[in-house]
Every structure is written in C-alpha cells, then in structure tokens.
Amino acid sequence: MSRTYLGEFEELVLLAVALLQQHPTGAYGVTIADELQQRTHRTTSVTGVHVVLYRLEEKGLVGSELGGATLARGGRRKRLFTLTAAGQQVLREMRQLRMGFWEALPTPFFS
C-alpha cells in the first residue's frame, strides 16, 4: 500500500489540526495540546505535539505559516498549521478504512 503510515498520536494531532483550523484561534501548539488533553484526558506536552506536527509537515500532510504574536508569548510568533489536500485525503482514507471494519462487524457486538 502506498498510503502514508500514521501512528495513533499522529492521527489524533492531524484530526485536531483539521478541527482547530476552523476556529478563530487557529491550530498551533498550545491549542492542539489543549484540545487533545480535553478529549483524551492524557497529559500532552507542547514539545511532543510540536515534534509530531513537524513530522506531519515533513510528510506533507500539514502546511504552516508564522504569525499572531501576542503579549503572553513575549512577542513571539506562533506557527499556525493548516491541513493540506494530502492531509485531508489521508484522514478520509483512514475513516473509510475504519468504517469498512465496523460495517463488517456483526451487530450483536454492540449490545
């Protein structure tokens, strides 16, 4: 399969980017980490999130640009991430893959 391999955490981060890029805050380290923490109740560190984001960027699944310095950041700019077409494609494929599995499962499984 030529599809890009994604780890679980990577997938979650990618989903978070897809979600947060619609928000006015934008998708960057802090918001992504917060989002993940709220949804998964896992402690997520910004540094870890960043590593994943950079990897995703290297794979071409997200794009980024700098901007939006604020006072709390000491005047530093943030790197705002957006989903690329490839990223959307990957998410869609993942979803279809999983849905395929679920549909194949017998219904009593959910009783």
């Binding site: 960057y28 380290g29 802090v30 980490a33 910004v46 540094t47 960043h50 950079y54 700098l66 310095a69 604020t70 709390a72 950041r73 000491g74 530093r76 700019r77 943030k78 790197r79």
Partner: peptide
Amino acid sequence: DLLEELQGDLHEQFAQ
C-alpha cells in the same frame, strides 16, 4: 528556526 514558536507556545501555556 524552531525556537521562536516553541518558546512562544510554552510561554503562552505558562501564562495559562
């Protein structure tokens, strides 16, 4: 090249 954004994020979280 990564310092600015990373440190910025950390500072922001720190403020929170």
